[in-house]
């Protein structure tokens, strides 16, 4: 029987009692507007520049040039393929792990949570330092060719996504009471593949998609690791672009921002605030 008072319904009589709230709201608005300005001005400035590629006129010339650049689409598509591969590997590893830990090995949970914290503890530049030292000489020579380096990069991305993926899947499993569902399915005679694909996955759709999109947003423009592994992906391409071109980088920043927005927007839409995320890897 809790009745929450909507402040807008305050009557004339209650003005005195509501006075402090009104004062607070002034500060709230002030903070919000100043904050919004801080975040929108750089975007607006970048957008402004991206429209100024042609002299004395606004237009989308910078975007046209960006997409016409012979290196842009190849590096973009390579990054997309890398991201998707990393997401698939991550899913293949994390879903059974999270499921198993929830159902069979709860004692392992602290260990796994600790390991999924490692990407936050090891800065990307340190990680790539160690990877190069470890895998650039026999017996573990993986950086010899471009393609073997690329495989290593994708695997590293998958590992970096563990924190987001594990948290998303774990939350999803907790929300659906995986134990009861599994036992119910078993008691009805379902086999393991049936349980996994007909019961668990459909209920985890939102969690899996959130984890995947978050991974995508982080991996797609990743610079540090790709740079030191000499990969021709979007991150190094963009870094190079900012040094060599004037207007294209602004168009590129807007496109990158739009991609991040799309990923986050979809997460918000499908999950309605389910994600508990920590960013990392800047």
């Amino acid at each position: 029987m809790t009745v929450s008072a909507a402040p807008t319904q305050a009557t004339v009589k209650s003005e005195t009692a509501r006075a402090p709230v009104r004062k607070n709201r002034f500060w709230s608005w002030l903070i919000f507007v100043v904050g919004a300005l801080y975040f929108l001005v750089p975007l607006a400035a970048t957008f402004y520049w991206s429209l100024r590629a042609e002299k004395d006129k606004f237009g989308f010339e910078a975007y046209r040039r960006l997409f016409a650049d012979t290196n842009f689409l190849p590096s973009f598509s390579e990054s997309i393929v890398n991201a998707i591969a990393a997401i698939l590997i991550s899913l293949l590893i994390i879903v059974p792990t999270a499921y198993w830990v929830t159902l069979r090995l709860p004692k392992l949970r602290p260990v796994i949570e600790f390991i999924t914290l490692l990407p936050f503890v090891i800065p990307a530049v340190v990680l790539v330092f160690g990877l190069i030292r470890l895998y650039s000489r026999p017996p573990l020579l993986l950086t010899a060719t471009y393609d073997s380096s690329r495989i290593l990069l994708v695997c590293v991305y998958a590992a970096l996504s563990f924190p987001y993926m594990f948290r998303a899947v774990d939350n999803g499993l907790r929300a659906m009471d995986v134990r009861t569902l599994t036992e119910a399915a078993q008691s009805l005679g379902a086999s393991w593949p049936t349980i996994l694909f007909r019961v668990i996955f459909p209920n985890l759709r939102v969690a899996l998609l959130s984890g995947a999109l978050l991974t995508f947003a982080i991996v797609i423009g990743e610079l540090t690791i790709a740079l030191f592994m000499a990969q021709h992906t979007l991150g190094p391409y963009m870094a190079n672009l900012t040094r060599s071109k004037v207007y294209e980088p602004s168009a590129m920043a807007i496109v990158a921002f739009a991609i991040t927005w799309a990923a986050m927007g979809i997460i918000q839409l499908i999950g309605r605030g389910q994600q508990g995320q920590i960013a990392g890897g800047h």
Binding site: M1, T2, V3, A5, A10, T11, K13, S14, A17
Partner: peptide
């Protein structure tokens, strides 16, 4: 029963709600 107004009345006595 819940929703009968008993808590609202109490909250008006406490001053958390102002009577209309």
């Amino acid at each position: 029963p819940s929703g009968c107004g008993k808590t609202t009345t109490l909250r008006m006595i406490a001053g958390f709600e102002t009577p209309t």
